[in-house]
Structure formats: C-alpha cells, structure tokens
C-alpha cells in the first residue's frame, strides 16, 4: 500500500486528510495522482491547481518514483515564517 496525505487548503478542498492506495501499477507520483482521480473523479479540479509533492517527507517533482510502503503527501505552496 501507499500512504497518501493532504494538507492545508488541499485537505479542506478534498474533504480528506489522506487515504491508502494499493501500490499495483503505481511507480511514480504522476501515477498516484491518476489513481486518486480514477477513484475520486471530483478531485480532478483540485489536482489541477499548483501543488507541491513530497515522497517520504522530501520535496520531489511529479516524475519521482513511488514504491510500496512510501508516504506521498500533496499540499499547496508553503506559507510559513
């Protein structure tokens, strides 16, 4: 399984803190997004906005690889400080 997390405005927009995805046929962040949208078609709009992504708590781009057991997080550009 792959653990998916959502934060801040994205979490509120999706109405979800996260989910678990079966890791079959998923090897990249892009494929994680595709699988999430297949499962929840109404999430498509939210994933079209400018989002950042982290795999195992490291910021990565969408072509980054994803393996079973990974933690994949999606969130809006950060605004701390």
């Amino acid at each position: 399984m792959i653990k998916i997390l959502f934060f801040a405005a994205l979490r509120e927009q999706l109405g979800s803190e996260g989910t678990l995805l079966p890791s079959e046929n998923i090897s990249s962040v892009e494929q994680v997004i595709d699988a999430l949208i297949v499962k929840n078609p109404h999430w498509q709009v939210a994933f079209k906005s400018s989002l950042l992504c982290a795999v195992n708590q490291e910021m990565v781009n969408k072509s980054h690889s994803v393996n079973t057991g990974d933690e994949v997080a999606f969130f809006p550009p950060v605004t701390g400080g």
Binding site: F7, A8, E12, A54, P76, P77, V78, T79, G80
Partner: peptide, 23 residues
C-alpha cells in the same frame, strides 16, 4: 524556511478564514 518548510497560514479577517497564497 519561507519556501521549503511545510507550514501553511490561514488568515482570520473580519470573521472570515482564508488560506494565504505563497508570494
């Protein structure tokens, strides 16, 4: 820290809440 640390601010203004956009 401003551009890489995963913090997000929600602003409270006139009784309304809104997430801030990155600058």
């Amino acid at each position: 820290l401003k551009v890489e640390a995963p913090f997000w601010k929600k602003e409270l203004s006139d009784g309304e809440e809104s997430w801030l956009d990155a600058k």
